[in-house]
């Protein structure tokens, strides 16, 4: 079947099978940031934004994206760049394989809740597994970013 969707701001017409998964479609389109870490919707690595909402692209049929907006990290570079440097300062990206899913979900969190508590951060990102970092450094990075942003905004007032 043929579907039309908007991927990272670009209108596309794609020929897909009825059982094609969204993760496979976006990777075919060169969005290699989207990773598969399991087959059971448990790891969060394949998170993308569907009309701005984070979804697991391994659990969404590509056909469901017809007529919708899909964003992967390739399309969110500027928004991501602002805060991921704070993760890099911690070294908490480690192997990096889980990063895109976790970064996208953090973007979604901060759009919903610009000033989350530590517990809110942990809860929102609970579905994003990371086997390397032990999570604490990622939390420190986000916290440092939020503190920096507050100071920036405070400074600008």
């Amino acid at each position: 079947m043929e579907i039309q969707l908007t991927l990272n701001g670009k209108k596309l017409t794609c020929a897909i099978e009825s059982d094609t998964l969204l993760i496979d479609l976006v990777r075919q389109q060169g969005c290699f940031s989207v990773k598969r870490g399991c087959e059971t919707s448990n790891c969060g690595l394949c998170t993308v934004l569907l009309d701005g909402t984070p979804v697991l692209s391994c659990s969404v049929l590509a056909a469901r994206a017809a007529g919708h907006q899909v964003q992967t990290l390739e399309g969110l570079q500027e928004e991501a760049e602002e805060f991921v440097g704070f993760i890099a300062d911690q070294g908490a990206e480690q192997c990096g394989f889980c990063n895109p899913g976790y970064v996208i979900n953090t973007i979604a969190l901060l759009r919903e809740n610009p000033d989350p508590t530590d517990d809110q951060i942990r809860a929102y990102l609970a579905g994003n597994l990371c086997r390397c970092s032990g999570y604490e450094g990622q939390l420190r990075g986000i916290r440092n970013y939020l503190n920096w942003r507050k100071e920036e905004r405070h400074g600008n007032v």
């Binding site: 290699f32 940031s33 989207v34 990773k35 992967t72 990290l73 390739e74 570079q77 991501a80 760049e81 991921v84 440097g85 993760i87 890099a88 300062d89 070294g91 990206e93 192997c95 990096g96 394989f97 990063n99 895109p100 970064v103």
Partner: peptide, 21 residues
């Protein structure tokens, strides 16, 4: 000292770096 990993920003921004990419 503490230092950013040389590949950190590439990894964090999801660039194609792994076998299947």
């Amino acid at each position: 000292t503490s230092m950013r990993k040389k590949d950190s920003m590439q990894l964090l921004l999801g660039k194609p770096l792994f076998v299947d990419d």
